[in-house]
Design a protein around this nucleic acid. Sequence first.
RNA 1: GGGGGCGUGGUGUAGUGGUUUAACAUGCGGCCCUGUCAAGGCCGAGACCGCGGGUUCAAAUCCCGUCGCUCCCGCCA
Length: 446
Amino acid sequence: MALIGAFMERTLINDLRSQVGQVVTIKGWLQKLRDQKKMQFLVVRDHTGAVQVVFEKAANEELAAKISALTAESALKITGLLIDNPIVKMGGLELQLQSVEVENMAESPLPLDPFAETLPDMDYRLDWRYLDMRRPEVALIFRVQTTAEMAMREYWIKEGFREMHSPKLMGSPSESGAELFEVQYFDRKAFLSQSPQFYKQMAMSAGYDKVFEIGPVFRADPSFTSRHMTEFTGVDVEISWIDSHEDVMKFHEEWVAYIYQRVKEVHGEEIKAMLGVDVVVPETPFPRLTMSEAYAVLKAQDYALPPERKGDIDPGGERLLGKYVKEKYGNDFVFIIDWPIAVRPFYHMRHADNPGLTKSFDLLANGLEITTGAQREHRMEVLLKQAVEKGLTAEPIQFYLDFFKYGCPPHGGFGMGLNRFVMVLLGLNNIREATYLFRGPNRLSP
RNA sequence: GGGGGCGUGGUGUAGUGGUUUAACAUGCGGCCCUGUCAAGGCCGAGACCGCGGGUUCAAAUCCCGUCGCUCCCGCCA
């Protein structure tokens, strides 16, 4: 703040209180103009707040006319004397306008009025996302996301993690049947990465011990739901020298609790006031349900699982489990562990005493799947055998298999959807709300 | 890929066979009033009811097709 003030003539609206009695300059948007006979009132907003600006028309008719011509949401620079005025409902402050500079006049009418009583459809809001995002509630979502990512990094750094940036262009499809986007790559084909999975495991083989990556993930799945996107931000973690997936879960839950705690500290009150959501720091450890226990719970509640999908849980079942765990343990989070090999990829390690089950987990948050994790199979012969069992051939994944030839430690990790995480954290009902610019099967712009 | 729902002024909605020259709110334009502050009052512009076809004396309203959006399932994060 002080640094900016040193070379920029501007006071943030949130900092005005300390400048009473001085001439200050604010920069922001005209949220409301109340143009009266003798007086003009302007509500001006920047990214920190809003303040009332007042002008007495008789003082300067020319300036008054200039103000009258201002349109809603124009970008303005206003200089005036800041006074304390308890009558003003907006913080008891008032800026007595001396000059106004129009940096960018907004066309009128606005295609989307950020301060209208009713909110347009999501799709329309996405068409005019930059206007939609002027709403303080939307701005809050992305301030929270920033804090959340900061907290993630704080925790990682403290634990000795290294940040990786793996390539998103790949020469061959990595995981078997995954839906990949194909792109033209000079005179051949390339694919957009649908997970940094293999590359973060390579870092384990490189001896980096613990790594994380926050980056884009592409999925060519034509999914039309409130929680799927074709491009999203993945949060990936991989940890070496673990004994089992339990070690990964232990890290995961403490890390999540820390993020919640930081977000609550920094934004808790605002979130409550603007979004009506109480950020509750979850108790650790999170409850754990094995797949068979999860099935028993669902069966006890007469939930009918689709018979042909044996070994998996459908979204309705996940929501019910979330509700069950909330009631029984008072926790929004639950790990579903030990998934059958049929529904897990070849690289998940299997239980030594039960080869039909993997040492894997999903993390459900309020009944929504936000994370998949596992201990990885680091013994090359076993890995290859499991790949073949899944119908894969060695050639396309040979580069991956090679990671395990020269001293790769036992390891495991998880991949979490950042947007889903923010969605659950803030109680948003659609992933588009938690995403800067949504990408779906039918949306590539703006 | 399968299924459901919805498409009415800029936006959000009402109207679901004939008093519809399509209503209401908000926004926009004009005027009036007012140290205003969810401002108030009056007036005005703005929709061939997504598109195409059909049924009917009569369609925003029913049927078919089509496009768009949306949610659910599948898939996943």
